[in-house]
Structures are given as C-alpha cells and as structure tokens.
Amino acid sequence: MKLNRSVQVTQLVSLLIAAVLIVLVILPTGQSPVTVIGTMIDGAFGSWDLVARALTTLAPVLLCAAGLAFTFSSGLYNLGVEGQVLAGAIATTALVRALFPDGGQAAVSPALIMALGIVAGMLGGLLWGLLAGLLHVYGRISEIFAGLGLNFVAQGLAIFLIFGPWKRAGVASMSGTALFDESVWLPVLGITELSPVALVLAGVALIVALIVLRNTYFGLRLRAVGHSLRSSFILGIPATQHLLSAFAICGAFAGLAGATQALAIFHRLIPGISSNLGYLGLLVAMLANYNPIWLLPIAAFFSVLNIGALKLPSELKVESSLAGVIQGLLVLAVLLSRGVSKRAK
C-alpha cells in the first residue's frame, strides 16, 4: 500500500512538471496559458459539431492504438503504423476505382462497394504490416527501421498513384485523386464528418483487443513472447508465428482506419491521409502501457486536444501543434515517472 502511494506521488509530481513545462512553452507566444487552455476547451466542447469532430478523430486513433496493443504486447515497436494506414487507404481506393470507375457506372450496389472497400483496406494494411513483420523476423532488420522504411515506400507509392495512373482528369495535384461518387461515401451524422460506422468499427476493435489480449490463450502467449522471446520459444510457443500475427492484426486495424478515412472523410486518396494519427495511436498505446483498459480514455483525451487546438490559430494566432507538444510532454513525463518509481523500489 505504501509502495502504491509513492508511485502515485511520483506520477503526480511528474505530471505537475509536465504542466509547468507546457505553461513555459506557451509563454513566448504572449498569450496567457489560461486563455490558451480555455480556447482549447471551447474548441473541443463549444458545440455538438465540435464534439462530433473529436469523435471523428477518435475512431482512427483508437483503431491504430488497439492494433498497436497487439504489437506492444509482443514487445515490438511498430513504427510502420503510419504506412499501414496509408496502405489501407490505397487498397480501398483501388477497389472503389475498380468497381466504380471515374465517370462510369457502379459494377455492384454502392453498399457492397463500401463493404468491400473496408475489407480491402483491412487487407492492404494487413499485407503492409505483415511485410514489416517478415522483414523483421526473416530479414533480421530492426522492426523500427523496417516500419519506418515501409512508411516512406507507402508515401512514395501514394504520390506515384496520385500523380501517375490515378491522376485526376485535367490537373493532378497533392490534393489527391478524383472524388469517389457520392453514393459510396460512408454516411455521416448531419453536416459533421462523424461516421457512425467508423466509430462502431473502432469500438469493436477495442473490444477485440481487450478480450484477446486479456482473456485468451493467444493473448497470454503473445505477452510471453513479449517478455522473453527466447524462453517462450524454448517452452514451445511458436514465437515467429505470434510475432507475425501481431504485425498482421495491427496492420489490419490500421488499414481499417485508412479505409474509413478514405470512405467517410476525404472521399479520395490524399498523400497525408493518415496525418500522423498512426503516431498518435502509438503515443496512446505507449501511455496505456500494455493495459488496453486505458486505451479509450487516453485516445479520447488526445483527440479532444487535437480538435481543441485547431481553434488556436484563428482565435489567438497560436500554432495548433501545441496539441502535439502537450501530448508529447505528458507521455514523456509518465515514461520517466515509471522509471523513478521503479528505482525507488
């Protein structure tokens, strides 16, 4: 009990230090930190539309974080998550374009195209994730660099497609491919970008991650692999298969996020379709520290920060990247405080 108390005190102190640093970062802008935080809160909760926007961001972040819970459990840093989101969006776009050519007729019913598009996105992400896994397991390349490398490759592929084979009639530009036909846009609530389908999928992904990681034999073995690859292998766990499945599952969830971004929000492929949401998912998963229960509250908080900060440039002429600064400082503070409490033992 006494030990727990000291852990809590350490965490509290480190969060306080993070808060002080956040204030120090805001000061050079000439705005009072209270005004800035107030504007952010207003920017996230000021109206139902804004709440809907935060929920719109929550869906892909949660999908990535739920997927990353698998790779984290197996002891891996899947930095390729950004590329896996993009690969999903590319696969979805490919499928939509194949079944509903630009300016042509839909080959099957729009609902079926959307459903197949989502499946294609999952498969695209899964393949990209598996590729990182194969490079790591069979090529003995650090998963960090395999993932990062594949991010660059996916980025190159997307830009190639947008400016090459899939270029918009007339002008090709960084703003992406031609819009999908309106009949294959995932339905959204009112005038917002919030897609109930995306949110439900994210919820399902979270529940799957919770149940599989905590209550199944597979989840237990995955954690064993994460704790010690060698001893779990000696004990007869097919470690390679478990590592590869973790990569595949994470890729599929990230690809799903890419699919919903393409079908519900952008209605096309753009180069920055993942817009760092995959890395945000990585921060969420790091903060949750192998405990999937925490994924939802942290992902929700981080989404609120992202949306709230969007109001800063117009209202206060303050950069919206403050959201990233706050998220980074919080994660850093928690990581360091974990080290401090461990040392105290």
Binding site: G324, G328, L335, R343
Partner: peptide, 25 residues
Amino acid sequence: ITLKQSQTAIGFVLALLCTDLSSFL
C-alpha cells in the same frame, strides 16, 4: 541510463515532441 526505461520509447516520443515544438515555437 539512470531510470533504465525503454530507450526506443523515450527517443521516439522526443522525436515527435521536438518536431511539434519546432513547429509551435
């Protein structure tokens, strides 16, 4: 070194944090 935390985690968080800080400041 002192707190013996994951070097990957700390380094990666700092990579993101410093990027955002550079945009903000």
